[in-house]
Nucleic acid binder design. Structure first.
Length: 805
RNA sequence: GCCGGAGUGGCGGAAUUGGCAGACGCACGGGACUUAAAAUCCCGCGGUGGAUAACACCGUACCGGUUCAAGUCCGGUCUUCGGCACCA
């Protein structure tokens, strides 16, 4: 078969007949199959796109043949940093390069032979989309879920610009190698922490990979403990969060994070220089470095003392960067005897280390002792276990007005302000009289101006566009300024799945009634790298919109699958710098899309991915040609005297059963292996029975089974078999279980766990039956005759193990 | 560093979740067909010993454990990949 010609032929026909147009009247029977949309960074599709979209399409086609009305849209996550950086380098406007890339990618995606219904396409950089991204912002704002506060950014004094973490290499700017510092800016946040508990408990109901759920749980990082207030000698006070209130008597010093507003305030004149130097040092360290337990603990005494509320003890207050301002309260009570970090710090700075927990039994209780033991040196609390002790101490503090129970989450509010051009503008204006004013919904979108100087020079690019910045206050009509920042692109991708089914709606972001029919997404497919951020943000948006009454579901993605990564032939991640990038194009031109897709399915474990190796491509090509030959031979038989012998029916139904199950589990490699087995069985059958007619139905089954993998190819064979267009309107075969029932099955006989023999038993045989068969067989008994049989283990259909002594 | 994965023949990868390790395929070797080649078809193919057999032992990153039985479970180690909140 000429694969390339076949592709063109059916592409035209599919297009003309509108085969993949979603039928909205069938929404009750829908399956929403969604792949994470792509970022149009390069002009062309890479192997990863094919891997993600091609094989998800196999799943989608399978669902269609199973009788579902499949909704499989495609679009582009089109805002983002790379286009802007590319523009800075080349002078090509981000909008121009992005839209050009999209055109190329659309063309290639269409050639892939996927069922995307392009009527529902989305591009997040278009005003008819980001208008509604801005609407989402306003809704969150109305609900008090968007707020402004100061937060640090990476700042390069050389380039005079904000840097993304990605642009910081070893603490320096990737462009000019100037050391990167932290600079505080007032920025917008979404209050995702309000949803921490629901984001956590909601996971239980989801059909997601366990590892993804675990990662989200850890990311949310719930810990139950207490808050304790420490008074300072100078009258101020600070609060710490702790999960170990029981160790409060062992608190010998306290630590403030460098960013803590109190740090400089409490610092004594004498310590001022040292503390300021330290804050400067800390501003240069990345958070990952600071969290590293291997990093040497550093800190400086502020000169201030606080009072431990439980015993009135005077303790020194330090500043140290192992305490993070973004976690808890940004201050900790240090208990060196029972915390590894505090222990290390106390040793280094010669601070007292005092045991207040001792081990219960004879276990090792060297300091730092972080296990749950028994309280000691804690006055009336001595002898309490850790759990009782925590409660007793917090109860006491509560009485004193110095503490309370508290649940803390590692999850932080989501910073969405970006000091960049290529993103959705934030729909807020600032008026001298009215202050911060949201743009009224009727004035949306706040259009991103085209003519803007986005070369980095120390301010947000939009700040330099006077026509953009200058506006009137929606409240008082006076002069006002717009927010010059744009939104994090994760905002755009946090609700796109809601827009797809109603992408042309110009009145609302989506029609509530319609969207409630179409969502949640039934199967979401995308990379595991999104486990924590994108997938958490999208869940947050969905929950928030649910609470506002716009949708009646709380979770966006019922079922989730992560595809693996195709690596370069050297086993490393593909990258231009490593020169190991495999372009799919040359293979497509040589073998066609069907062969390429099928190979991607066959050569890798979908969930794992792996290094590229083109050898298998030839094999798949060979396999498809073999399918063509064999179906041709079978179908050439005009009349069938024999309606498929039993061995054929077995092979056929075995394949139907396993290929279906494997596709449903995204195990495409084994599905294709089962197809190969069917082809082998058919080939053998033809060879062994050259004079007999064979089953035409087996050939048709084979074509139907292979259709989701090689759609053009299957259409061609289906037509050749004299069937009516389209194979994708034909029903997927159903397994006839009765054809899989065998008279006898073979079982292995183990002696002491080693296979010594095989024997046949009737397929329904019970344990007792099987034991009788073994004991009655001289042949089998010879393996253990004369030895003492200590145990007989029989698992029908699986194994028989005789333990002898 | 922390969180989460992964490690199985020469190679890509299977293994119904504790039950015959290596399905299916690639590569390789042998054979059939052919004047020949290609294509196609058939056979073999983890390692060691043994005679090429029968058979035996070893073998799922490494060390130890649980079990009649471990790639699978438990404890520890190494390597590697993803994420770590401004890449998307």
């Amino acid at each position: 078969m000429d694969f390339l010609q076949t592709e063109k032929k059916w592409q035209k026909k599919w297009d003309k007949s509108g085969l993949y147009k979603f039928d909205r009247s069938q929404a009750d029977n829908k399956k929403y199959v969604l792949e994470m949309f792509s970022y149009p960074s390069g002009a062309k599709l890479h192997v990863g796109h094919w891997y993600n979209y091609g094989l998800s399409d196999t799943y989608a086609r399978y669902m269609r043949m199973k009788g579902f009305e499949v909704f499989q849209p495609m679009g582009f996550d089109a805002f983002g940093l790379p286009a802007e950086n590319y523009a800075i380098k080349t002078g090509i406007h981000p909008q121009d390069s992005t839209l050009a890339n999209i055109v190329t990618m659309e063309k290639q995606l269409k050639a892939m032979g996927a069922m995307f219904d392009w009527d529902y396409e989305i591009k997040t950089c278009m005003p008819d989309y980001y208008k509604w991204t801005q609407w989402c912002f306003l809704k969150l704002y109305e609900k008090g879920l968007a707020y402004r506060k100061e937060a640090p950014v990476n700042w390069c004094e050389g380039c005079n610009t904000v840097l993304a973490n990605e642009q910081v290499v070893d603490g320096c700017c990737e462009r000019c190698e100037t050391p990167v510092i932290k600079k505080n800016l007032t920025q917008w946040f979404f209050k995702i922490t309000d949803y921490a508990e629901r984001l956590l408990t909601g996971l239980d109901k989801l059909d997601w990979p366990e590892k993804t759920k675990t990662m989200q749980r850890n990311w949310i990082g719930k810990s139950v403990g207490g808050e304790i207030t420490f008074e300072l000698e100078n009258g101020a006070s600070f609060t710490v969060f702790t999960t170990r209130a029981d160790t409060l008597y062992g608190c010998t010093y306290a630590v403030l994070a460098p960013e803590h507003p109190l740090t400089l305030k409490v610092t004594t004149e004498k310590q001022k220089k040292a503390v300021e130097d330290y804050l400067d040092y800390a501003a240069r360290a990345s958070e990952i470095d600071r969290l590293s337990t291997a990093r040497e603990k550093t800190g400086v005494f502020t000169g201030a003392y606080a009072i431990n509320p439980i015993n009135g003890r005077r303790i020194p207050v330090y500043v140290a960067d192992y305490v993070l301002f973004t976690y808890g309260t940004g201050a900790v009570m240090a208990v060196p005897a029972h915390d590894e970090r505090d222990f290390e710090f106390a040793q280094k700075y010669d601070l007292p280390i005092e045991r207040v927990i001792e081990a219960k039994g004879d276990e090792n209780d060297d300091l730092p002792y972080v296990e749950y033991g028994v309280m000691t040196n804690s006055e009336e609390f001595d002898g309490l276990g850790v759990e009782e002790g925590k409660a007793a101490i917090i109860d006491k503090l509560k009485e004193m007005g110095k503490g309370d129970y508290k649940i803390n989450y590692r999850l932080r509010d989501w910073l969405i302000s970006r000091q960049r051009y290529w993103g959705a503008p934030i729909p807020i204006v600032y008026c001298d009289t009215c202050g911060e004013v949201p743009v009224p919904e009727s004035d949306l979108p706040v259009t991103l101006p085209y003519d803007v100087d986005f070369t980095p020079d120390g301010t947000s690019p939009l700040l330099k566009s006077e026509s953009f910045m200058h506006t009137v206050c929606p409240k008082c009509g006076g002069a006002a300024r717009r927010d010059a920042d744009t939104m994090d692109t994760f905002v755009c991708s946090s609700w796109y799945f809601l827009r797809y089914p109603d992408n042309k709606n110009s009145d609302v972001a989506f029609d509530t009634e319609w969207i409630n029919k179409m969502l949640p997404v039934d199967k979401y497919i995308g990379g595991a790298e999104h486990a924590c951020m994108h997938l958490l943000y999208a869940r947050f948006f969905t929950m928030a919109l649910h609470d506002m009454g716009y949708i009646d579901f709380e979770e966006p993605f019922t079922s989730l699958v992560h595809q693996g990564v195709i690596l370069g032939p050297d086993g490393a991640r593909m990258s231009k710098t490593k020169d190991n990038v495999i372009s799919p194009d040359e293979y497509i031109q040589k073998y066609g899309s069907d062969v390429f897709r099928t190979y991607l399915g066959f050569g890798f474990s979908y969930i794992e991915g792996g290094p590229w190796n083109e050898d298998g491509l030839k094999a798949v090509h060979r396999f498809l040609e073999r399918v063509e030959r064999i179906t041709g031979q079978l179908i050439a038989v005009k009349e069938s005297r024999e309606d498929g012998k039993r061995e054929i029916l077995y092979a056929e139904n075995y394949a139907v059963k396993h290929v279906s199950a494997d596709i449903e589990n995204f195990q495409f490699n084994t599905a294709i292996a089962r197809l190969m087995e069917l082809v082998n069985a058919l080939g053998k059958y033809i060879d062994a029975n050259p004079d007999k007619d064979t089953s035409v139905s087996a050939a048709k089954t084979l074509i139907l089974l292979i259709a989701p993998f090689a759609p053009y190819f299957a259409e061609e064979l289906w037509e050749a078999a004299g069937e009516k267009y389209s194979v994708f309107d034909a029903a997927y075969p159903v397994c006839d279980e009765s054809a899989l029932v065998l008279d006898t099955i073979e079982m292995p006989l183990q002696i002491n766990g080693r296979v010594r023999a095989r024997f046949n038993v009737p397929s329904g045989a019970t344990k007792e039956d099987i034991e009788r068969i073994i004991m009655n067989s001289d042949d089998l008994r010879s393996y253990f005759d004369g030895k003492t049989v200590r145990k007989v283990i029989i698992v029908p259909g699986r194994i028989a193990n005789i333990v002898v002594g």
